[in-house]
Amino acid sequence: MKRILVGIKRVVDYNVRVRPRPDGNGVATEGAKMSINPFDEIALEEALRIKERGEADEVVVASIGVADAQAQLRTALAMGADRAVLVQTDAHVQPLDAARIFLALAQREQPFIVMMGKQAIDDDANQTGQMLAALWDRPQATFASKVELSGDVARVTREVDAGLETLEIDLPAVVTVDLRLNEPRYVKLPDIMKAKKKPLETLAPADLGVTPRPRVKALRFEAPPVRQKGVVVKDVAELVEQLKQRGLV
């Protein structure tokens, strides 16, 4: 059975403008729309396309988080994943612990690829995939914009600061995905109905031998300094004048 394991994180939706709580003790997310981390959605889409090409047999999605993360896993099942695992906890799970949980899932599920987003749009940490690859002692190909499989190896094109880098990696491996890998499909209503019947297993971190322990402590949350709104000039001549006055040209 050729299996792909995909990480799915429940995050505040991309379109919600998040603000710190007035007391500085957290982020005001109460009542905010929650979604699949957009990068993880791209990872899932890629896994589904690999399966649809006949290069994988099963796509398993896994999430770590609160009971309500079932909603995001159901969406993933509606997109086309075969089954889901929720590692349910109310604890704050930081990247190294998330990587440990995914390591245990990888050992249990024996996937030939683990895919996830390159970062989650809440903590913007960009760590979990790389940490999993280290703990698993397997290749990592981060920031993927193209994935081609051939037997026991994959060719992955990565978006790096200098351009596009291509690596050849032995499988199994961890691939973290970037924005331009694909455009995720929309979920259709009949698929939402079908997804309700797909298996969704719930585990506790302890079932996988992990006790989450936040080692990075949050002291306070603040809004960033606001840039003062500047002036709108009426024409190019005035713009040039302003640039000169400011010593910029």
Binding site: G129, Q130, M131, A133, A134, R215, V216
Partner: peptide, 21 residues
């Protein structure tokens, strides 16, 4: 940078220490 973002979490996991990004 993409160099450090790729490399450093792997180092942190090998050292079993947290990373501040």
């Amino acid at each position: 940078t993409t160099f450090g973002k790729d490399l450093m979490p792997r180092v942190a996991a090998l050292l079993d220490v947290p990373q501040v990004s």
